[in-house]
Nucleic acid binder design. Structure first.
Lengths: 148, 148
DNA sequence: GCTTGACCTCAAGTTAAGTTGAGCTTGTAA
DNA sequence: TTACAAGCTCAACTTAACTTGAGGTCAAGC
């Protein structure tokens, strides 16, 4: 069994509820780190559980792995993050959350209004109009992770 | 140019802010309909603009095309939807919106609490716990990880 | 009547976030 | 010491929601 302080990938998977393959994936993306045993097996410090928890939480809210990765870079590599470190992170995400909530509310209220006015007419509908920016960028899927 | 009542795919694209390819795609998925000219080109009734608007709005909220398609089936094929028709649809989605908003709020508040308590400790964090996927195992390891 | 831009179809590519599988190595319990 | 669960790597597959491209047709202005 692994030492007292270190976790195998399977243990992390079990404790975090994340598949081993996903952990490999996160590591490849630089979201978590591990060191290797002489036999090339991964070993994790216990702080990886925090990181993984953060990753899943953020994802649930619809933050992409790329953004999460960027945010996690603000956390110190070597030492255990202090309260200040977390504070920074949490605050940033709380703002994002607030934004998302506000957006959803706007949509919901717009929808309600639309029922009231019986509209959904293209040019006047408030929902429609706030949509200006939509046709924007790039190929491929864009909306996969929106707050499942 | 197309007649007064009919729109070409390009016109729909321009007016809805959705790419032509996306319109083709929606049609293939059964989300919108068109009929064809003698020269096999698509022509749309004006109500397609409403449908597309609905589709985009719903997507922004994180409803999948599959779900949208299902919902749109409740709309009448032939006639212009009545207020009642829209009402049904809107109400269903408003509920979804309310749910999503509630979820986000929960997360935000959890995050705020975590800042307050400086935790993010695996076993006690409300965010973590509400996620409910606790690794059921490793009694020894568990005690270690509580660490703080 | 010709040219040019909008259309058409169908196949293949793209992105995110992983999963699955093959083939091979480690580690540990009996 | 041996069986076999757990790990490892790397490549290929998956799903959603589109986009891009190739190869060919249609329509409208000059």
């Amino acid at each position: 069994m692994a030492g007292v302080t270190e976790l195998t990938v399977g243990q992390v998977a079990m404790r975090s509820g994340v598949a081993v393959s996903a952990l490999h994936f996160y590591e490849a993306r630089g979201l978590i780190r591990s060191h290797r045993t002489s036999g090339n097996q991964r070993r994790y410090g216990r702080d990886v559980l925090r990181r993984v928890a953060i990753i899943r939480i953020a994802q649930e809210v619809g933050i992409s792995l790329a953004e999460i990765g960027a945010a996690l870079e603000s956390l110190p590599e070597g030492r255990t993050p202090t309260r200040e470190d977390w504070n920074l992170l949490s605050t940033a995400w709380r703002d994002q959350l607030d934004q998302k909530i506000a957006q959803l509310k706007k949509l919901r209220d717009g929808l309600t209004d639309c029922i009231g006015c019986g509209c959904m007419s293209i040019d006047k509908c408030p929902l429609r109009n706030k949509e200006d920016r939509l046709g924007a960028q790039g190929p491929g899927a864009r909306r996969l992770l929106v707050a499942r």
